[in-house]
Amino acid sequence: MIRNAHQLDLHEVLNLHPDAAPEEIERAYLHLTTIYSENSRAVYGALSDEERRWMVKRIQEAYETLMSRAGAVGETRQPAQGKAHPSTSAGEQGKPGGSRAPAQDIAKQQRGSDDSSKQGAERETKAESQLSAKAVTGAHLRNIRIAKGVSLDEISAATKVKKSYLEAIESDNPKRFPAPVFMKGFIKAYAKALGLNPEEISEKYLHREQ
């Protein structure tokens, strides 16, 4: 009778109604991973680290399961769209793998103390799979960065791009964006530092529908 996180079904974990659309699932996922991330301000003093990790795992599971269910439905209805879905974002296959190196380094260092680096790696792939969408938002990027365990300071140090600009990119805050001529370069540098495809990301970020 008392509410308890242990008894929630997949939709309840993500606060979704049973017939939520993939976009809603994705939005809920991004929202919740931020809330339960390690440096979330709301988690402070609220949960033990064990509880927090447990919840992160539940969110991940719920997201993956619901997305794959939703993906299957989408495919039967609209095959063209279905294809552009899951982990094919690694459809950056054609690109030289070299561009991944710096971020992997940063990410590895970050995870040094974390015994479950395998789980972390899975989370990374999952976060990246969101990039298969047509548009990339700052929230997507932030989520991937967090999943990889890389801080903005580190990216800033690696790319020599001012942190405030990186923040502006992640928060989609045009007021704080650098001049348009620099914008593309900064997004590319950011993407590269995370081991993502710079061309694809800057394209999808800059040319999305408003």
């Binding site: 509410r3 996180a5 931020t34 809330i35 339960y36 301000r41 609220a46 949960l47």
Partner: peptide
């Protein structure tokens, strides 16, 4: 700022799931 405004809903989310109260 904007971040401050996100903290309220986030706390509610945690309380709703881990504190047994609405």
């Amino acid at each position: 700022d904007r971040h401050d405004k996100h903290i309220g809903p986030a706390i509610c989310e945690i309380v709703n799931k881990f504190y047994g109260v609405k």
